[in-house]
Amino acid sequence: MIKEISIFVENQKGKLSTISKILGDNNISIKGFSVDDTGEGYGIFRIVPDYWEKAEELLKKDFTISVNNIIAVKVEDKAGSLYKVLKILSDNKINLEYTYLLANSIIALKVDNEINGIKVLKNNNIELIENNLMI
């Protein structure tokens, strides 16, 4: 299972770079990220670090964070491949909450039911990434 760290941020300039710096200084690399901005003065910064446990340890003191499971899939570099993944999920009544791009043509998927999500994707021969270090 892939671990994603969500960080609550007020829209303060420099917050994202502070977080990137803390992780960079500790040789943790961010494999992908997204920013959910509400436009109301706060938002959520999501990152997928390679060494997520260490990242959690470093960030939890000064930030409001939450570690959650996500699914990461390798999508082939051709038209329609992302659609194929999304269709499998929706055909199986699994709701996608959000998605974003990770490194190496890997897509992060946050669904309402990870266990089922993984099962149906596997059954359809979609390549799943096992853990954060394999991204």
């Binding site: 994603e4 969500s6 609550f8 959910d36 509400t38 706060y42 938002g43 959520i44 999501r46 409001t64 964070i65 939450s66 570690v67 959650n68 909450e97």
Partner: peptide, 8 residues
């Protein structure tokens, strides 16, 4: 905080 915008 569980990482959800809807929650906030």
């Amino acid at each position: 905080f569980h990482g959800k915008l809807s929650e906030l």
